[in-house]
């Protein structure tokens, strides 16, 4: 072949191929790079949860600092000034605990929005663009492919849930006298982060499952909202008409709330069913999502 420019010459690879152990991470990195190209969705989906996180953090901070000495002891606390201070601190800790629980309720919606937007198109758009032909002709297993996509959605979900929760928790820890929040309420911190991770995992699996059924992103997006919000509306409707709160178990977000109450020892839980039912329901949904993805990937790999 005659080169038309000095560049049109075939060059041999000078380096060498390494064992591709982290193929899923390369896929994750590439998908993140693509997502970060479009700034408007990032702005719309990331800014509100972080603003909420900052507002909640400020409230938490104010509970510990601005209200020092102004708060009244919790009822039944006795023992003079020292007892009064202990009582004030105990009240503050409870109030901060409640703030974190309220934030986790709010964060379910942020997580749903972010996961639906960034996750709904992953599998179906790959299939539409023929990307699976390129991926599966590489040393990329179906599990690597799934893991790469799951990590992508999980990251976005984590940015809007785990991140702000950690911020609020850290503010609570550092604002409380002698790190009292860490020593007294460490289980709340652990529960809130664990719940955020669970929330993101369940919604990510649902989004991936629906994405693997849809032919384009818009359908998958509508499917995710329809499934999650539809199940909640149905649960709320039955609970309202039957006068039995257990019907709320039909809703994905309601089950997530039940788990939030359970994992963070929330004081005023609206739902009273056994939380293990919610674990089973959400676990089943996540497993179903995984099965749908596995089935689709098997077909995509063989069609490739």
């Amino acid at each position: 072949m005659t080169a038309t420019t000095h560049t049109e010459i075939y060059r041999k690879l000078k380096g060498q191929l390494e064992p591709s152990r982290f193929a899923a991470l390369h896929l994750w990195r590439a998908r993140m790079m693509v997502a970060f190209k479009r700034k408007l969705p990032l702005l719309l989906l990331f800014v509100p949860p972080w603003i909420s996180g900052i507002v909640f953090s400020f409230v938490v901070y104010s509970k510990f600092t601005l209200e020092q000495g102004m708060g009244s002891p919790i009822p039944g606390t006795t023992g003079g000034p020292a007892g009064s201070m202990v009582g004030v601190l105990a009240g503050q800790l409870i109030q901060v605990h409640d703030q974190i629980v309220i934030f986790t309720y709010v964060s379910r919606v942020f997580a749903l929005l972010a996961i639906a937007w960034f996750g709904a198109g992953l599998v179906c758009e790959d299939q539409r663009a023929g990307a699976h032909l390129l991926y599966f002709s590489r040393p990329l297993s179906r599990f690597d492919y799934f893991l790469g996509h799951f990590l992508t959605i999980f990251t976005f979900g984590a940015i809007v849930t785990i991140g702000p929760v950690l911020l609020i928790g850290l503010v609570a820890v550092f604002s409380s006298p002698d790190y009292a929040f860490l020593t007294e309420k460490w289980d709340v911190l652990l529960g809130s982060v664990g719940y955020a991770a669970l929330n993101v995992t369940v919604l990510s699996m649902i989004a991936l499952g629906i994405s693997s059924l849809a032919s384009r992103k818009s359908y998958a997006l509508a499917g995710v909202f329809a499934f999650v919000l539809g199940s909640d509306s149905l649960g709320a409707m039955f609970a309202g008409t039957q006068g039995e709160s257990d019907w709320s178990m039909l809703g994905v977000l309601m089950n997530l709330r039940r788990l939030a109450d359970w994992m963070m020892n929330a004081n005023q839980s609206r739902f009273e069913w056994n939380p293990w039912y919610s674990v089973a329901i959400l676990g089943g949904l996540a497993a179903l999502g995984g099965l749908l993805v596995a089935r689709r990937l098997r077909r995509l790999e063989v069609v490739a």
Partner: peptide
């Protein structure tokens, strides 16, 4: 492949380098 295929949202350099990374290139 015979049919059209691309990695959604990427330009040619990103696509070829991403696939190279997945194959095991540094």
């Amino acid at each position: 492949p015979e049919s059209d295929c691309l990695l959604p949202g990427m330009n040619a350099v990103e696509m070829v380098s991403t696939l190279g990374r997945i194959t095991g290139l540094s």
